[in-house]
Write a protein that binds this DNA or RNA. Structure first.
Lengths: 331, 331
DNA sequence: CTGAAAGCGCTAACAC
DNA sequence: GTGTTAGCGCTTTCAG
């Protein structure tokens, strides 16, 4: 099927291109009769405007780039859903890029992004992408960071205050008399792990205590489980805070296999929970991160930047909520 | 930063646009000296070709559209990863679209796809989307379907033979003397459930037996778990085959809560397992669907279609592999 | 080997 | 209200 262009429509409707253009862009100056005429021609020919040509003429593509870490869809999925739902409302398309830590070269991805002339880019980022962000910033392209605080001229962010979440949690437990609280590393999201540790440290310091219970996972272990199953042969804590629910599950399984009773002897809490938590026994006590909102809000922020709306808050902090389940005692 | 165009480069290098164009497209006719000269200008100015303008001139965008069902990233994630890895190799971009059954209007998404002028579209589809596929076919745009067999003029598919997988499995169990095999519905993927049932039915028929052990999940139940926890109060099977591992987990949990011993009294197997299966106890015996390959192969097929390579097989069947774990006895 | 010029499909002044 | 026309940035004949 030969692609039909605006010329074909113009000829069919006996008007000029300009008029057709006006009709498809909903300009109000067109006389109703001719507008109808053009509409008919459009449907008759099955004409669909060429977004590429529009993009070239308008210098905007109504497409945004989304960059996410590879293989992490379990916890990025909801973000994407939220983002796409909002994008759809505003008629934006989304170009998806993934990056792999240690493999993807910042330069390469920036290259692709810039060439594709997206109107903006949303990055679900770890600290590792600082490079890309700096380079993109140099091109003056609007950026929204998810999960990382920060802002700038054409940079906004939507994040969850991890530090505060963990700090408040630790403060509560310290209040219960608990002193042995450990934070488990997450090699897939080192930054989040770092923030959790910071929260714990702050809470302890506020109570005049010292904290250095960060459990590092050495690189040689292929999975969290591999490591913790060994770790809990010789360790035990009153409370272990993990990043993802899958890690918390690994902790629970490993601890139990080593005879540690959950939650009686050791409690486990995670920061990010996915729908799998509901299928798992015991259900992990967790924070619910509003992932969907994270995506939806960042896309909305992006549209504001692109439409030059006044942005009241360039750093949007979303709330988390703690839900006690089966891996914590109920004090 | 003002965007630098091919003109700027041409001026800087004291050549014509045509020459610059030749250089960036690697044409071999350019004299090495001028080519170097142009290269220098390009790096000096930080020039990056405008893919939109190229798209308009070449009538191709090196972008493909990917359509997946919303909210299903747990089992689509690997597909996307595979697809993007291959796309990256061939320098294709991927535009992501999600559809929600019953909500997204097929017409609307086709509209968006066509307007965006992608070179081809890959659809991870259930039978539901026949409409969209037909409409797209009408526009003569190359299509690759994932998970659904079928082919046509500009249509290829990459799939797993679910029927065969389940048929073989059932045949084996029938050989063990097992007769009470049930297949659990999946409301999120009715088609897959249907194919599983077909496989079971075929196996039984091949053995001169009748089969009608399909467990339908009524719509009023909000989750598989809600339903099965009730179901297993009054039912028990020798083997239950579920589609997703999360469903299998629900079955295991529900059965146990009703005093049914797994795997001694009832075995459970699922078709699709995600990485969560490894964090769960008991580990579900399952087929491993080569999701990554599903994505990677479809993208490779797509590049072949787009590059007009000879395609030997328009319907590519990938292999599954059964892995016995803790929810099956080892016969 | 390189340059001039037409065209890809559309928008947006500027005329009329 | 509608038409004319000059771009948007790039590729690609066709000359030279």
């Amino acid at each position: 099927m030969k692609r039909v262009t605006i010329y074909d429509v113009a000829r069919e409707a006996n008007v000029s291109l300009a008029t057709v253009s006006r009709v498809i862009n909903g300009s109000s100056v067109v006389k109703e009769a001719t507008r109808q005429h053009v509409q008919d021609a459009i449907t008759k020919l099955g004409y669909k405007p060429n977004a590429i040509a529009q993009g070239l003429a308008l210098q905007r593509t109504t497409t945004i780039g989304l960059i996410i870490p590879e293989a992490s869809f379990t916890y990025t999925g909801q973000i994407i859903n939220g983002l796409l739902d909002v994008a759809r409302i505003y008629n934006y398309n989304v170009m998806l890029h993934t990056i792999t830590e240690g493999i993807t070269d910042a330069e390469k991805i920036v290259d692709v992004i810039i060439k594709s002339r997206v109107d903006g880019v949303i990055i679900y980022s770890d600290k590792m992408m600082e490079d890309s962000i700096n380079m993109l910033n140099h091109y003056n392209i609007p950026i929204v960071m998810i999960a990382n605080k920060g802002s700038g001229d054409s940079l906004c962010s939507v994040y969850i205050d991890v530090v505060k979440a963990i700090k408040d949690l630790c403060n509560r437990y310290i209040g219960y008399g608990v002193r042995d609280i450990a934070v488990l590393d997450d090699r897939r999201n080192r930054n989040s792990a770092r923030l959790m540790a910071q929260g714990a440290k702050t809470a302890f310091e506020q109570n005049g205590l010292e904290w250095n219970n960060f459990i590092t996972i050495p690189n040689e272990y292929r999975s969290t489980y591999r490591f913790v199953s060994q770790y809990f042969e010789t360790h035990k804590h009153q409370l272990v805070i993990a990043n993802r629910d899958s890690q918390a599950m690994a902790v629970v399984n490993a601890a139990r296999e080593n005879g540690i009773k959950i939650p009686e002897e050791m409690e486990v809490i995670c920061l990010i929970d996915t729908k799998y938590n509901s299928a798992v026994r015991p259900k992990i006590s967790s924070f619910s991160i509003p992932s969907y909102d994270l995506g939806a809000v960042s896309m909305r922020v992006m549209t504001k930047m692109l439409e030059n709306d006044r942005i009241t808050d360039r750093e949007k902090c979303l709330n988390y909520l703690f839900t006690a389940r089966q891996t914590t005692k109920n004090y």
